[in-house]
Amino acid sequence: MRRFLGALAGIALFGGIAFFLLTMPRGLSSREIAALSEGDAARGETWFWAGGCGSCHAADRAKGEDKLTLGGGHVLATEFGDFVAPNISMHPEDGIGAWSTADFVNAMKKGVSPDGRHYYPAFPYASFTRMETSDVVDLWAFMRTLPEVEGRAPESDLAFPFDIRRGVGLWKLAFLDDDPVVEVPFDDPVLRRGRYIAEGAGHCAECHTPRGLGGQLDTLRWMAGAPVADGPGNVPNITTGEGGIGGWSVADFAYYLETGFTPSFDTVGGSMVSVQDNMAMLEPADREAIAAYFLALPALASAR
């Protein structure tokens, strides 16, 4: 009996150590940190709009300049519980004003906080991880120009076992991958630019792709539509498959990103309004590149 209990204890101890080691937050190496340069805020503004920071971190339904006020508080109510977007203004205590460049890159690309904890992937670093470090550094330079907002947002309120933050380490081992998802010709700069924006900063898949049991994106149904995470209705299929955007041209898609009107002049609605407002802030060439990417995706029928 004693030996059995002893063996059990040994297994538990081994399991605990393995869990601890496997889930250790991994940030940038010291060499990578040393190589970080000064960012360019003007270039960084592109990534602010492409990434849609203000759509989650500013007040609900904020428009225009108000999207630069990043006090947090938006609640994403999901089956895992309520995720609350934090204050990411330049306030040194209530926001991220005291962060270093490395802190910001670690958050965006590795999902790790300055005090070494995992972020929940409701913060879409699983997409942002595909961004070039230099673009993230430029974005940080732009963020540094934004105002301070007082007041911390409430903590996220998650159901057991998702409230064990350390467990996200296992999720990352299984699902965090900075490789591109869709193959694109090496010599097509427009498609490559479109993929870079859509699969990275744009994080379109986080809403438009269905998820598996672990909350990970189902890459076999890439951009083919999914239930809305925090409300009624469905997020549309934006491949050219049945139920999607078959019949749209690249110009149609780019026009939608610019104006919010589909080819049949239906209007954008729901959470996409905020996204489309962001897309309208991009260069026309970037909207066209994004459009080219979506028109080139494998055509998948909507799940119903």
Partner: peptide, 8 residues
């Protein structure tokens, strides 16, 4: 449509 219309 942002607040008062069900998507899809």
């Amino acid at each position: 449509h942002e607040g008062y219309h069900v998507p899809e």
